[in-house]
Write a protein that binds this DNA or RNA. Structure first.
Length: 137
DNA sequence: ATTCTCACA
DNA sequence: TGTGAGGA
């Protein structure tokens, strides 16, 4: 499985996302309503987030803290994807994004490892163990 | 037990 | 944004 696929695979439920991002479920659902994130859904209509979703939510949180409103965030995030044919992109800005993502990944691994251990300890789980285990081979 | 949608003292 | 009701 490619890295790109891995990062976009829907894996975690709300509870994990709230602890990973420090955002409330209410906020996350609200951001989704405004088209800032599009988590997948399980059969039971539960939201399933991917690593990409987590990164996106962390960026959103960052912008919110900086006082950017949802409309503004929506633009910035979409521009980020549509900025392929634009032109010059400050090298410094690129590096900053890369570093931020690297840090995000590191934190995610730690938190996820913790989640897995706790889930396993409390012995009770279906989706997490099977799906997430592949990230820690 | 968890998450979902909807609505508002 | 928080929170509680009523379902799944």
């Amino acid at each position: 499985m490619s890295d790109l696929n891995r990062r976009s695979t829907p894996l975690f439920p709300m509870s994990i996302i709230t602890s990973l991002t420090d955002l409330t479920a209410r906020q996350i659902r609200y951001y989704e309503e405004n088209g800032l994130v599009h988590p997948a859904r399980s059969k039971g209509n539960r939201r399933l987030f991917s690593f990409n979703d987590v990164d996106r939510l962390l960026e959103i949180k960052d912008l919110i803290d900086k006082g950017v409103n949802l409309a503004g965030i929506k633009e910035m995030l979409s521009n980020k994807t549509t900025k392929t044919e634009t032109e010059e992109v400050p090298k410094e800005e690129k590096l900053e994004v890369e570093v931020k993502q690297a840090l995000s990944d590191r934190e995610l691994r730690n938190l996820l490892r913790k989640e897995l251990l706790e889930a396993g300890r409390l012995n009770k789980n279906s989706l997490r163990q099977g799906e997430l285990s592949r990230f820690f081979h």
